[in-house]
């Protein structure tokens, strides 16, 4: 059973730099994914302003009736978020691992332009392996 529906990576200006869907139920076309990513970027920023106490770093988890959205923002303000099944566990750790893959196979690729859409095969490959491994653990 699939636990993750989609993965988004947003750069610090709110642009979608990576999108991937898992499972057939949740395919978004390019326009939709871009629109949703920038909306999420704004909502994340608004949540910081809503915070009654200073030092809030934004939404980490959004629970809806049909899914959970887990968001991880690095200190460099790149956001990684996945839409997952309700109650899926271990997603925080998964997001941290995706961040590590991103630093290894995207940022360290000398031909990757920082802040631009990610087109790195090695990243795709390792990400696919990670998700596959994760799925088999969660089943």
């Amino acid at each position: 059973m699939a636990s993750i529906y989609n993965l988004f990576i947003i750069n610090k200006s709110g642009g979608l730099i990576y999108y991937k869907d898992y499972g057939s139920t949740s395919k978004l076309d390019t326009n939709d994914s871009l629109r949703l990513a920038s909306l999420w970027h704004s909502m994340h920023a608004i949540s910081k302003q809503l915070s009654p106490t200073p030092g809030c770093t934004g939404i980490e988890l959004l629970q809806a009736t049909a899914f959970d959205l887990h968001c991880f923002q690095s200190l460099t303000e790149t956001k990684f978020f996945v839409v997952a099944e309700s109650g899926a566990i271990g997603i925080e750790a998964l997001l941290k691992t995706i961040y590590e893959l991103y630093t290894d196979y995207v940022l360290k690729n000398p031909f990757y332009e920082v802040e631009m859409p990610i087109r790195c095969e090695l990243f795709d490959l390792h990400l696919a392996r990670l998700i596959l491994r994760d799925k088999s653990v969660l089943v």
Partner: peptide, 11 residues
């Protein structure tokens, strides 16, 4: 540096 910082933070 602008790339290495993420490596540092993630690990």
């Amino acid at each position: 540096g602008i790339r290495l910082i993420d490596d540092f933070l993630s690990k």
